[in-house]
Amino acid sequence: MDKLDKEMQQWLAGQTSDSQQRAEEEARYLALYNALAEKPEIKIPARFAENVLKKLEAQENPRWVMQMWGKMAALFIITVASGILLALLGFRLMEGFDFSLKPYVMPTIFALILLFIIEYADFYWLKSKQMFRR
């Protein structure tokens, strides 16, 4: 309140000597002061502290960078392999279906399932490192 009194006196110094106008000025100043003193409600995101600590841990621990590169390399190899297999399958299908396709079908399905599992696991792993927003 001392802060308010001192500042209000400073503010009112030099203002009009008209008592009504002066009272209005005073009320307006108080109104502003009261409104300024009121903190607007700010919602802090849930688990904010935990998320900061996780991010900090991830940044301080370079091992996860190596893990990421390893996973990226594995993903690249599997993506290329399944792409080649799918292309081969496609070309053979264009020539018409026959039983000679059989050797390509199972490896392609395996590669795609493997790709899906790795992508899925990778997403959760990166999410746990706070690499994605919620």
Binding site: R28, L30, A31, L32, N34, A35, L36
Partner: peptide
């Protein structure tokens, strides 16, 4: 900043604020 804000507060608003 306070001067700019004070000028925007009309006499009609002051009672509710107070």
């Amino acid at each position: 900043a306070r001067k700019l804000l004070k000028e925007k507060i009309s006499p009609n608003t002051k009672n509710t604020l107070l």
